[in-house]
Amino acid sequence: MRIALTGSSGKLGTVVARELREAGHDVVGMDVVGTRGPGFLQVDLNDYGQVIDALSGVHGESGPFDAVVHLAAIPAPSIRGDIATFRNNIITTFDVFWAAVRLGIRRIVYASSETVLGLPFDVPPPYIPVDEEYAARPESVYSLVKHLEEQLAIELVRWHPDLSITALRFSNVMDPEDYAEFPSFDADATRRKWNLWGYIDGRDGAQAVQRALDASTPGFDRFIIAAADTVMSRPNAELVAEVFPDVPLKGDLGENDTLLSIDKARRVLGFDPKHSWRDHV
């Protein structure tokens, strides 16, 4: 496929660009920062004119595209102020979605977030492991925008029944060099309770993008994307009993299995995470 990849200079975007190209796709990265050259176009996604130009083929490195992968965003709460985060993230997502729809691009995969599940879980989740079945619980402006982006996608596919939009609720993205810190997490179960001790290796994040592109069908769907294990060596039963003693359990927790359920992504997308921090430490 010929793919427009926004946020191609980011932590996840750089890995997704590499992995998609290695899989044989023609990828044009688009970001507000980056070095001009083959396969990259500098685009301010807050400017709709620049977005529709880039996706429509005005520039030599752009269009026509088979799909859009939208990863660009201020990537977490508290990096910038709430107003800046809200404005940047909702406008860039609307610009990308709207331009794609106007240009007839009917396959969109984009980065939603684990935060819509209720992170940092100061209010405990309704059950553990968490999954996609309960209503969004945004607890920050960043998360609120991610929820609104999913609602935007729902309405756009209703307006355009041939449109496919897939939201990937990525967990905390990690590179191999990040794993050296993981053994220190065991000393304090509360240090990483904010996302139920979850993470995702960037390479498996890229796999999820590829799987979503391949499996896309008209309509909207959302998937939690996490590693198969937690960031902890301590067993899940011990962690949950200490930090979330009153939360109902939904099935077997496993010894160190992810508590951000990826069952739906496995079943529907064929997602199969290959990388674990335990292989690097």
Rank of each mutant, 00 (worst) to 15 (best):
M1T: 14
R2C: 12
K11C: 00
L12K: 00
V16R: 01
A17Y: 09
R21Y: 04
E22F: 07
G24V: 07
V28P: 07
M30I: 13
V32H: 07
V32C: 07
P38F: 07
F40P: 06
D47A: 14
V51E: 03
S56R: 14
S62G: 15
H70M: 08
A73H: 00
I74S: 04
P77C: 10
I79D: 01
I79K: 04
I83L: 15
F86E: 08
N89Y: 10
D95F: 06
V101Y: 13
V101T: 15
L103D: 11
Y110G: 04
L117F: 03
P120A: 02
F121Q: 03
D122M: 05
D122I: 09
P125A: 11
P126F: 04
D131F: 00
D131T: 00
E133V: 10
P138R: 08
S140A: 11
S140N: 06
V141L: 10
L152V: 05
A153R: 09
L156A: 11
R158F: 03
R158S: 09
A167W: 07
A167S: 15
L168M: 08
M174Y: 11
P176Q: 00
D178Q: 05
Y179V: 12
A180G: 06
D188V: 13
D188N: 15
A189W: 10
T190I: 02
R192T: 14
W194K: 10
D201V: 05
Q207P: 02
A215V: 11
A215C: 09
P218H: 12
R222T: 15
I224L: 13
A226Q: 05
A226K: 05
A227V: 10
D229N: 13
T230S: 13
V231E: 06
N236P: 03
V240H: 07
E242F: 01
E242K: 06
F244Y: 15
D246G: 00
N256H: 15
L260V: 11
I262W: 03
D263M: 01
S276Q: 01
